[in-house]
Nucleic acid binder design. Sequence first.
DNA 1: TTGAAAGCGCTAACAT
DNA 2: ATGTTAGCGCTTTCAA
Lengths: 340, 340
Amino acid sequence: MAGVSTTTVSRHLAGQKIREVAAVQATIAALDFRASAVARSLKSGVTRSIGLVVPDVSNPFFAAVTKGVESISRQLELNVFLSNTDESVERERSVLRGLIGRVDGVILVPARESSDNTEELRRAGVPIVLLDRRLSGCEDLDCVLVDSKDGATQAADHLVRLGHERIGLISGPLDTTPGRERYEGFIAALDSAGVELDPALIQMGDFKLESGYQATLRLLGLPLAVTAIFSANNLMSMGVLRALHHMGVRVPDELSFVGFDDLELAELLSPPLSVISRPAVEQGVLAMRLLRNRIEGKGPAKAQHIVLDAHLTVRDSCGPPRCGTHGFASSTRVSTGSLL
Amino acid sequence: MAGVSTTTVSRHLAGQKIREVAAVQATIAALDFRASAVARSLKSGVTRSIGLVVPDVSNPFFAAVTKGVESISRQLELNVFLSNTDESVERERSVLRGLIGRVDGVILVPARESSDNTEELRRAGVPIVLLDRRLSGCEDLDCVLVDSKDGATQAADHLVRLGHERIGLISGPLDTTPGRERYEGFIAALDSAGVELDPALIQMGDFKLESGYQATLRLLGLPLAVTAIFSANNLMSMGVLRALHHMGVRVPDELSFVGFDDLELAELLSPPLSVISRPAVEQGVLAMRLLRNRIEGKGPAKAQHIVLDAHLTVRDSCGPPRCGTHGFASSTRVSTGSLL
DNA sequence: TTGAAAGCGCTAACAT
DNA sequence: ATGTTAGCGCTTTCAA
């Protein structure tokens, strides 16, 4: 070094006034000196990093959430570790474990509502904010949610109002907050509207595209034709659309469709899709703010639960029911159709 | 601690054989002990983290790249810091600076070809792999690219073969590898096909949705109608589609369209989109492998440049030209149309 | 096989 | 205003 002790340099870096400013600055420049983030972390116990754990970055919804988190964390000069769990509890556990000691806090979209992998993190004193999904036994954690139940209710009401009575539900995993709430909201709405609840109309998916595709094929194969489909998330909706397209089923003429979560291109599809939409970037932003407060020890000691609204965006994929015109399963229906 | 020195514990954790295995393991379990990643990093000089710097995670292409990177880094037990630059050189610089000392290597999609922000990183000895875009003065870095020029050529040839002569080009920034190469490839292909190159047909965009929208409006406003449009990336393609939709221009009847980069829903749009597609997840995977080798000092000393192929996926958005039927600019054309 | 000691780079307490 | 010292938690000589 040039002239002074490391302490002096440290002080200078910390913004304190020192005598040999010039010399120190010159030497810093000459040596291209940069304080070691690692050593700082070791000394201070703070990493200036956070973890963001989502099921799948390539899901546009989580991509948007990520953007929201990232924009705030940049302002805060926090680096973000991004990890995918691929909806798997095991992966989630290993990911979370790998974050211990590397981050000051975690924003987590839990893979399964009933599988709590936050134990170790919490013992290690790492603040956690839950995003989009609850976690049983973790009601004491901050949480940013959307009123999925209400959203699903709106979807169901919309279809019922149009006169649909045989509506297929492609549900997400029930052990997931959005999966469960959308399921419950939808079923309850149909129920209170006096619409039948044939179990065959309920198809379980896993929030991934392929499961939406397969579920749709199963629904189309039902002996009694469905006149409408509701899908519990965007990826499965894509699968539904693909299946409908491959089977040559016209929407909304032959079948009506509503999906939970908007798609960037939804209005450009043919027909433009009616969907339940909700803020995504904003969820990320709110979660990051909540986490910041936890990390800094600000804010109320009590857990904050923020619930945002979802709302129906009506476009063109729903119409009145028209029975028996699509499908490949029942030759009876087909011949009936041709008799008319 | 219980019975032994920290050294012994350290050895046990490192996999060496020690006498008091039982006692040590018991104590580790009892204390929920976890070696500090930070202290380890300080001692070893290795962080077991990498940085991934992209222009925009919510662009489906980069989301897919991210997934590829993430899948390999998980296998390698490396954590990944994700950052958006939002196509901004300034943001890139600050992001890259923030990564120094925190990562063992960086995968970078540079914001601008001619603005090299890697200086500091390189002086700090951090290995870098370039992804999707070159960086001038950095030919010595490993790099994973796609043959954009060839892809754009295929797009141009496709349109020319169908008989188009007034083709609008919505280009990305020329100071970007994909922007420049797609521009050059497209222009060169038209040129060698003997198609006119009216400068008004070339609209500059910034790879974001809104610029595709605006560019399309400008193209539709041209006195001499365009019969086809080529857009240099997926986000701008969405903008084009939206503009065409709003203006009521039918594809491919009134106007043909090809875009660079596939869209998850491209085949479900009406019409299904013809696009230039290319591996995305694979680019991420390859870049991560390259980076791993650099970090471990394996592999050839010489920089590796991997160039993947792009190919035309023909669907239904291109047809033969039909002039003068769309647009809102020229009243002459409109009245001519109604006279027919 | 194990332990003592030193040091990775930083900062806070204390002393000057 | 500046320097000295100690210690964050780990690993790695070196010695026993």
